[in-house]
Design a protein around this nucleic acid. Sequence first.
DNA 1: GGTCACTATGACAACGTTGTCTCCTCCGGG
DNA 2: CCCGGAGGAGACAACGTTGTCATAGTGACC
Lengths: 327, 327
Amino acid sequence: MSDVARLAGVSIKTVSRVVNDEPAVHPDTAERVMAAIEQLGFRRNLGARNLRRGSTTGTIGLIVEDVGNPFYSELNRAVERIATSFGRQVLTGSSEENSDRERELVLEFCARRVDGILVVPAGLQHGYLVPEMRAGTPVVFIDRPAGDIVADTVLVDNLGGTIEAVTHLAQHGHRRIAFLGDSPDIFTAAERLRGFREGCVRNGISYDESLVSMGTPTPDSVGNAVKRLLDGPDAATAVIAGNNRVAVHLLRALAHAERRPAMVGFDDFELADLLNPPVTVVAHDVSALGHAAAELLFARVQGDQSPPRKVVLPVHLVARGSGEVAP
Amino acid sequence: MSDVARLAGVSIKTVSRVVNDEPAVHPDTAERVMAAIEQLGFRRNLGARNLRRGSTTGTIGLIVEDVGNPFYSELNRAVERIATSFGRQVLTGSSEENSDRERELVLEFCARRVDGILVVPAGLQHGYLVPEMRAGTPVVFIDRPAGDIVADTVLVDNLGGTIEAVTHLAQHGHRRIAFLGDSPDIFTAAERLRGFREGCVRNGISYDESLVSMGTPTPDSVGNAVKRLLDGPDAATAVIAGNNRVAVHLLRALAHAERRPAMVGFDDFELADLLNPPVTVVAHDVSALGHAAAELLFARVQGDQSPPRKVVLPVHLVARGSGEVAP
DNA sequence: GGTCACTATGACAACGTTGTCTCCTCCGGG
DNA sequence: CCCGGAGGAGACAACGTTGTCATAGTGACC
């Protein structure tokens, strides 16, 4: 900046005025300064600016499990859209479902003085956030609630959605329904399992623990579970996939199976309608999830001091065929 | 920091020493300082630190067309992985295939003094980058080359891949092959079209322009193109989809068609193997693309001054069935 | 002609850190 | 008893900006 000032024959304060479009600069002077800026390729240092102004940094942090997962990338996109409309940029990070990594990312973002943080929490302990939140960094939890603190949260109706899935299968005559879920340490997985149980009760199906398999989904883990659940005289006639990744592995496992059970997935996914049979899912609007969370965050950034809110977004069953297969 | 110093009864410089793990601090003093930091919830301001040290900011910028597109989110993930290994964080932005937006994002990132920029360019003019690159911000172009400047670039073998696709179809007896591509303004689309033409030539098929349809893919645009190309006596018996989004729209359009042509897609996608018939694609390793670009960027960040490099990653045809349908 | 308001500009401090330099104290060796 | 050196700690400036205040010049008005 001082180089620009020297070249234009003005003080650095005048350069500052020009780059900030402040009035009270003579047009001729402004033009000289602009020319110097152009010639030197000057770009003002936003870090220094934010430091001096004590203002916001114009960035928010988004922490998800894996930015490469289509579910989270859609969320990312929705968040980015809102952030852009508020003139902010997005720092992203993948926690890899590891609470230490989550914490590391959050604290790093705080050290960078992001204006706010959106997080799909990996862990259950969030006490470390208290000082940060007290220091003025708003935090909104997405898809899963905070472990041990009260904070803004945006969820989907996991319980209701799974109940609906069970009911759908029951209506098509199924009494032996299996549930394949992610690790029960994950809130959504636990909640959906709870919904599964509740759904069984409501439909007069006795809940059978041997038809449940929970755990981080891999092709092998899901494949083995499928073998176990669909074999024998008491085999399941229908399966519920607890999330999009379970669904993918499940579909692949079923592709080579002789008997195809009915199936309902939680989370919609691209091309679900083109498979054979088309996959019935409990769908929810991931974009809406991101929008709601980001809107809430920016309300906080702009000073909204109201008590922490908990938003639960609706889900709806999209019947495409795979849930209507007879037992 | 001065609050911490006051509480611990030391100077701020000593606090600085403690938070930076500098030696020559008495253990007792260090402990007092730590306690004060804990009590006040102090977190050092990385912006101020970077300003003072004149060091790198520890961030890189990644600009893609749409962070929500699975192709780019996988890229994002690969980049993040490398960035993490270099202790950097990633700022992301979606250009939405708009060159003004691309420019805006790049300049904003530069103003934030990112250590480097990875960009899937939307436009063809990159002169605006010259001052930034001269000022020391390395830039690596991904998936598409820079328009009018010389810079590091990582591409995939678009030409070879499409030739391979045509050859595959020709080997299965097809002579009337259609090509559905994205807007020809996009480098990859133009290049794949070139590969299509070249593939026709090599396989002794006369190139027929009426079998080509280029443009931003929407369900309608692709649907109409399918109707046009697959109707009449001279209808195409095979179709090549120019990218993953064209492929998705194409599959949906074909689902309701009476006659199903053979098909090969460029870009692999999840569940391609589970469709009926399984979709043959020209696959490439998106993660490798991100890795290579990020590795190259960090080499530059760390001072590699060698001439700009151009890396072309191989592609390979994954025959799953849809390309082997008879004419 | 003197005062006033207004325009255009600059000097200086401050934002929160850290690098450099200096100072003080304590200890061992001559 | 003095001196040199090491260990521990602080004062101060500087990074690149911008907010505040001060200053000089220019008309306009009484």
